[in-house]
Design a protein around this nucleic acid. Structure first.
Length: 886
RNA sequence: GGGCGGUUAGCUCAGCGGAAGAGCGCCUGCCUUACACGCAGGAUGCCACUGGUUCAAAUCCAGUACCGCCCACCA
């Protein structure tokens, strides 16, 4: 059969994916009789386009799922998308603006219609992009967070939490994004350290002299318009006499009390702090303690309110400038100090977040956090790598209530109503009179009056936290829920540990009574080749689709897998990807060679006695590799599994075995038959071992090398546990001998085609047998025209001498040829030096009496052996040098 | 302020108590009939620093110095 010398990924990827999907190879089968293995996908945003983060999780999860499927599990990898409240609303709003439409002008209903339209058109894009990577998802079970059953789950969860008093509505200070026009959770407000200023401002004493007053320090002078007190520490001697007096807030000239409060840090600034209960979380609390008025001077649009006097209507930052200027001109600005402080920004639009007081819905976290902490502490849920466990516990131990309401239109609308006639409603005057309901309310159940539904929607993550079971049909006890929940593994990036993973654990325990997964594996973030974060401004963003186009999906996957070291971010280097594209090609060509030898079907199994030392060696190496690969995957060491398989395939199988098989095949007869079978057997097994990482090329080759009914995707994953083959003794020595002979050749600049004669002197009978048994292979691998065994090295020149573990040898060019005795001696002497140094190291170790006494016997034994080996080697080299002199 | 990491070959990183490793890059030869996306060979390291524990430390402990990340209501 003729096949190309190069592997062409494009040619086969789409073809195989379509066949897998059509045949239902990825569909979970509850009736299969196999044990279930479940992973739910971290649902990408419907607005999303594939980025390297997706490529990472798809690769890792697909490796796990394919591996388990091959191991005989009924594997379910459940895909889906997230409605992604703010993100989607922003994207669609922008699209509409391009068409000259505005969200406001459309109105809520029309706008939501548009979003659904938009998601109908583009929402599937991301899922087909996952297919390009080879994702073996069960597409028959695809879910969307706004599907009716999932929305029902959200509503059920909300109503239950509300009825238990864990969800409450209240008037508190929250993070407000003036640009998105909504409240945010603490996690969605990202803090950034920025160089700013600390303004020292004089607040004059009531009835005092012009320069008499308190100097306060602030980073936000524009908020002084809303000041309702100045606070000092009760123990601060400097200010004791001021407590209870009144000072004048500049610009608005309001008299406010000086209060004493423990929260004040005497060391910071001047030790006197202006209190703005409406615009600072600390001041908000202080305001409650001291019963201060809350005067909002910055509105939800980021502009100054009517309370801001002359600054009303100005942007908050323009107002800051204006106020500083005014203070300066009035002589109230004492000094400006440079000051670093962290400023919160909106995760979505990066606008500076404004602390604001507003009516919002909150989820009481503490009662949920307790069990979630316990689940991880007890090991019921294992977090890998381990250091994230500490991070998780640290965060959970100090978690605050979660603001779950958003002033958006796209999302799950909060199921709460208000009655204008009797004033009842959720969290209203009479807390007993609840108006949060599973069924939509048409009128007030208490007075029959007209009701309004709460306009807010829920934070996207509220539905995300239910994902592992809402996707299975919860709260209904569906067959899928019973069988596939809890899931096996939650695999995702560490950046959403708090956003998602922690909340899923809390919700899972709360609603299902079970941890939603047994293991959490957190992978690193994909960065550029230099380890920098990918960003549009840096221009270092790589598009996985481009990479697939350029290198093939298998190379992309292999690269991500081998770079995935737990606990480390991934520096994605396309240079490496080139290397793994070459690897796919290597595999391709190895298969080509095997097919050239074995035809296109499985050769007949030879009698065990016919297997030669090289056959046995590669077969045992294969089993060893299979065992290690399984162990590595078990421990989520993707890099180790990939690395192992790479080395086995390239170096053990291709570099050594494939070459060594050539003389055997040439010899014909039983030897050739054994080699042909071994070639086929090991290649076939290697394809299965590699399949989870490189699904496409392995399927293509697996189908090519022999007629097949099923897919490799359904074939058994080699466990290597059979232990049928043991590596023959002394083959390592033979390999070293070949290596040393090649050294001699390279040093002399002899071309590969220059045939050399060689004489080998093995140290003992065992070695002699081994060399004798691999004579053809040694001759071929070292390119010798003849090889003979002798009991001593030839004396006469121009033989080049060499030493390998256990064997001395001599070589010379069959056709005339000279040896450079000087160079050769140099080489031998260098070798000797190294060997002596190694010998000395172990000799010293063994000479230490406490070593023999305290070290475990096997370590001592090994050291002794090594020392003896070095001693012998040194002796061999010396004699070679000697013979050179003669 | 609290927490978590990192410092090993020119670069990106494995190894985490018993002979210093990989990939890429570099140097020397090779179109050897599977593959030049290839073959063979080679060079390269006070394993950040300082102490300690141990028969034995890149590996464990403590401290120091840089680098990075996360959390947090220091005005």
């Amino acid at each position: 059969m003729e096949i190309a010398t190069r592997y062409d990924p494009k040619e086969c990827e789409e073809r195989w994916y379509a066949r897998w999907e059509e045949s239902g190879a990825f569909t979970a089968r509850p009736d299969s009789g196999k044990p279930p293995y479940t992973i739910v996908i971290p649902p990408p945003n419907v607005t999303g386009v594939l980025h390297s983060g997706h490529a990472m999780f798809v690769t890792l999860q697909d490796i796990l799922v394919r591996w388990r499927r091959m191991q005989g599990y009924d594997a379910l990898w459940l895909p889906g998308t997230d409605h992604a409240g703010i993100a989607t609303q922003m994207v669609v709003s922008k699209e509409l603006e391009k068409q000259g439409l505005s969200r406001q002008a459309l109105g809520r209903e029309k706008f939501i219609e548009k979003v659904w339209e938009w998601r109908g058109e583009k929402g599937g894009a991301i899922l087909s992009q996952l297919r390009k990577l080879g994702a073996s998802c069960d597409w028959t079970r695809t879910r969307f967070t706004l599907d009716p059953p999932l929305s029902n789950a959200v509503r059920t969860a909300f109503v239950r939490l509300y009825e238990e008093g864990l969800i409450y509505r209240g008037h508190y200070m929250i993070n407000w994004c003036p640009s998105c026009g909504t409240a945010l959770s603490d996690l969605e407000a990202e803090h950034e350290e920025k160089q700013g200023s600390l303004w020292h401002i004089l607040y004059r004493l009531e009835g005092g002299a012009l320069d008499e007053g308190l100097v306060v320090a602030t980073t936000r002078p524009e908020t002084l318009l809303g000041d309702t007190a100045v606070a000092v520490h009760p123990g601060d001697e400097r200010y004791k006499k001021w407590i209870g007096k009144r000072v004048m807030v500049p610009v608005v000239n309001r008299l406010v009390p000086v209060v004493a409060d423990q929260m004040i840090d005497r060391e910071f600034g001047t030790g006197a702090v202006k209190i703005t209960p409406a615009h600072d979380p600390n001041d908000f609390e202080a305001g409650k303690r001291h019963h201060l008025e809350e005067i909002a001077v910055i509105g939800h649009d980021g502009k100054m309110t009517s309370n801001a006097g002359p600054y009303a209507g100005q942007d908050r930052f323009a107002a800051r400038k204006g106020i500083v200027k005014q203070l300066e001109s009035e002589g109230l600005l004492v000094k400006i100090e440079p000051h670093k402080s962290s400023v919160a920004h909106c995760q979505r639009c990066h606008t500076i977040v404004e602390p604001a007081i507003s009516n919002q819905w909150f989820l009481k976290i503490e009662p949920l956090a307790g069990p979630a902490i316990k689940a991880v502490e007890s090991g019921e849920i294992k977090i890998i790598p381990d250091h994230w466990r500490k991070v998780y516990l640290n965060w959970m131990g100090d978690i605050h209530d979660w603001c779950i309401s958003r002033q958006l239109w796209w999302g799950h609308r909060i199921p709460a109503w208000y009655c204008d006639s009797c004033g009842n409603g959720a969290g209203g005057e009479d807390p007993q009179r609840r108006m949060v309901s599973m069924k939509d309310l048409g009128s007030c159940p208490y007075c029959g009056g007209a009701v309004r539904r709460d306009p807010d929607v829920l934070d996207t993550w509220f539905s995300s936290q239910l994902w592992p079971f809402s996707t299975m049909g919860w709260p209904e006890k569906t067959a899928d829920f019973e069988r596939y929940y809890p899931t096996a593994v939650m695999e995702t990036g560490y950046d959403i540990l708090f956003f998602w993973v922690a909340r899923m654990i809390m919700a899972g325990l709360k609603f299902t009574g079970k941890a939603p997964f047994k293991e959490v594996f957190l992978h690193g973030l994909v960065r550029d080749a230099k380890g920098r974060k990918m960003s549009k401004t840096l221009g270092n963003v790589v598009d996985p689709l481009d990479l697939i186009e350029q290198y093939g999906a298998d190379a992309v996957r292999f690269t991500l897998a081998i770079l995935c070291v737990p606990g480390t971010d991934v520096a994605l280097d396309t240079k490496r990807m080139e290397g793994y594209r070459a690897f796919a090609n290597k595999l391709w060509n190895a298969a080509r060679y095997v097919m050239m030898q074995a035809g296109d079907r499985e050769p007949e199994e030879p009698a065990k006695d016919d297997l030669g030392p090289w056959d046995l060696w590669i077969l045992s190496e294969f089993e060893k590799t299979a065992r290690s690969a399984n162990e590595a995957l078990e421990a989520f060491k993707f890099y180790e599994a990939a690395d192992l398989l790479y080395h086995f395939t390239w170096h053990s199988f291709c570099d050594w075995y494939l070459e060594a098989s050539k003389p055997a095949i040439q010899a014909g007869g039983n030897r050739a038959a054994a080699a042909r079978w071994t070639l086929f057997k090991v290649l076939e097994g290697t394809l299965r071992l590699l399949h989870p990482i490189m699904p496409f090329v392995t399927e293509e080759l697996w189908q090519k090398i022999a007629p097949r009914d099923g897919f490799i995707a359904d074939a058994a994953y080699p466990s290597g546990k059979e232990g049928d083959y043991a590596a023959p003794g002394h083959l390592a020595v033979v390999m070293e001998l070949v290596n040393k002979m090649r050294n001699v050749r390279a040093e002399r600049g002899l071309s590969a085609s220059a045939q050399l004669e060689a004489v080998v002197v093995p140290a003992d009978d065992g070695l002699a047998k081994a060399v004798e048994g691999s004579k053809d292979e040694i001759r071929f691998l070292a390119r010798l025209s003849s090889l003979s065994l002798a009991s001593s090295l030839p004396d006469e020149q121009p033989w080049a001498k060499g030493v390998s573990g256990g064997c001395r040898f001599a070589m010379r060019a069959a056709t005339a040829g000279e040896t450079d005795a000087g160079r050769e001696r140099q080489r031998l002497e260098n070798d000797l030096k190294k060997v002596l140094a190694d010998h000395a190291k172990f000799a010293a170790k063994l000479a230490n009496p406490s070593f023999a006494e305290r070290a475990p016997a096997e370590v001592v034994e090994k050291s002794r052996k090594l020392m003896e080996e070095y001693a012998k080697k040194a002796e061999d080299i010396r004699s070679a040098i000697q013979s050179l002199k003669d």
